[in-house]
Amino acid sequence: MTTVTRTGRPPSLLLNLWRSTVGKKAVMAVSGLLMLLYLVFHMLGNLQIFFGPEEINHYAHWLRTLGMPFLRYEWLLWIFRAGLTVCVVAHGVSAYQLSRRDIAARPTKYAHQRQRATYATRTMRWGGVILGLFVIWHILDLTTGTVNPVAEHEHPYQNIVASFDRWYSCVFYILAMLALGLHIRHGFWSAAQTLGANNARLNFFLKLAANGLALLLSVGFVSVPLAVMFGVVK
């Protein structure tokens, strides 16, 4: 009946994907999900602080010796750092390029303005920028120790307590974690939609999972500065 018209495969697969809005969005979704996966483990690691200085400091040491002697000291950690950097850059660049395009596609606003979409959906761009700035501050504070008053190597407990003894550090951290919760609330479900994993039956459960993940991560992360502020951890 029908004739088969198979057009040849495009010359460069990845470049073509990157050039299309759907492909670029898929890059955003995959990098976002990888960061999300990392954050789940990062949060669990952070909660070690409630078991006392020895536990979390030992955990920090363990992280650095992971994979030894096959790998050398801190090698695996650096592999993760490299992967995360790729994710942050890919996520940020695709977010920036798509946002530029989206704004250009709708140059004139309606005279009659109406509240659109949910708060989480509307704050993806600014929330993302807040998260990006937070990541920079966070690395300078607790990774390099540049802006940390104590900055002891392999002593995260002391560094964290010192950092959160400053009110502005707590405020920024808590604000960023609220932004993170909102970002994941829209982002997790959105990523499923972008990668084609959503359908009428799954939709409800994906939204539920997005809310659950968002709540779990923000509460888990925020518990640490709160514990320092209220003297539970000192």
Binding site: G23, A26, Q193
Partner: peptide
Amino acid sequence: PLTSIAAMNRQFLRASL
């Protein structure tokens, strides 16, 4: 429905990859 966009994304990614 909005989920039709997910269906198109799935087919696009499958066709491109």
